[in-house]
Design a protein around this nucleic acid. Structure first.
Lengths: 206, 206
DNA sequence: AGCGGCATCAGCCATTTGGCTGATACCTGA
DNA sequence: TCAGGTATCAGCCAAATGGCTGATGCCGCT
């Protein structure tokens, strides 16, 4: 019984590499490739692959998490395995919550990827070893929930804007910006804008 | 006359993909693969490839620019073609200054990569279209040269450290840290730590 | 109708940060 | 030997930042 796989990655080169790696064995067969999340959803609806191997970052369109959610809503729902370069906490959790069966880092050896797909197809949870603890850690101290406005302020912060500049851009007073910042600092458990930026980038909040 | 190519990328999957893409035609042959810059330099010294296709980000070891410099110091020196996902100004310039014959973005189609290698091997300069203007723009305002100490301070800055913390870590007084920061700010043409962090990240300084 | 969350704003005050000027010491290369 | 770059430190001062307390209006949910 061969397992069918759909590849989703915005880089043609990576797709070629995955295809080469996956088809080197004979238990897996790549039935399709998609460059965007939208394409992946359409293709999966037609091809009914057993497993979808999906990059988290998909360029301009919808991201891997959104794609995962849509894929899992299909009937029959494919097993979704997330593949990515970075191991940001927020994204690990996001992917798992979205219904992904696991999470592989791109810098692992081919056989690990193949083995991951095999195990995911069998219904196992697949996590890169150094990620398992991270996920658990994340479970213990769930990501702080920032409001949309706070995220917006955070983005300006990360671009190096001063309170005054942020205030001007958002058409509010500096007092308001300071208020948002105070909340952000509390939620992120930091006490300076620099560290807030750092934490936000670390956890993938922005 | 076939052109020999050495692949340098820390992701096995990407190497597989590049190999598949490159060897699809018959004008190019991949003679080796390296996962790190150090490995690339050693291999290039033995294999004497015509072209080295090198990722800018190589994980933990030396980066693509450093690798380029070392490769260009070999005799005979291979043509170095930089491949990467991001089009950061600093890195474009850095790579060109380091002697790279060009710069390709990873998200292009296979044939563009093959064509790029062919042209680089022929002695052409290869720049992704949307990068040419960027390079020229960058030429006008060359990258500021920071000292080692300043880079060190900048890293701590980017991790959100206060002046006091940086001072403690580096075993100097706060006055010294402030002095370094003043120089950094002047060189980066900014006036706040947040913006310094942003510029440093944008330009790939850290 | 009331409660909680959110976005908005204000004032006060201590700390941090950044601009400026200037000094010492070391090292390297002309 | 001298100039220039680097790293180190100091003091002064203005501006930005962060902590605190508190207030208003809006919206959605119960």
């Amino acid at each position: 019984m061969t397992t069918t796989v759909l590849l989703v990655d915005d880089h043609p080169v990576v797709r070629s590499g995955l295809r080469a790696v996956i088809e080197a064995g004979d238990a897996l067969v790549v039935v399709g490739e998609a460059a965007t999340g939208e394409q992946a959803i359409t293709l999966a609806g037609h091809l009914h692959p057993d497993v979808v191997l999906c990059d988290l970052r998909l360029g301009s369109g919808i991201d891997g998490i959104r794609t995962t959610i849509e894929l899992r809503a299909l009937d029959p729902a494919p097993v979704v395995l997330i593949l990515t370069t970075f191991d940001r906490d927020a994204e690990v959790l996001g992917a798992i919550e979205a219904g992904a069966a696991g999470y592989l880092l791109k810098d692992v050896d081919p056989e690990v990827i193949v083995e991951g797909i095999r195990r995911a197809a069998a219904g196992d949870m697949v996590l890169a070893p150094d990620l398992a603890t991270r996920v658990l850690k994340g479970m213990r101290s769930p990501l702080p929930k920032l409001t949309d406005r706070e995220i917006e302020v955070l983005r300006h912060l990360a671009r190096g804007a001063t309170n005054k500049e942020i205030a001007r851009t958002l058409f509010v007073t500096e007092a308001t910006v300071k208020s948002h910042l105070a909340h952000i600092f509390t939620k992120l458990d930091v006490d300076s804008r620099s560290r807030a930026i750092h934490v936000a980038q670390e956890t993938g909040l922005i």
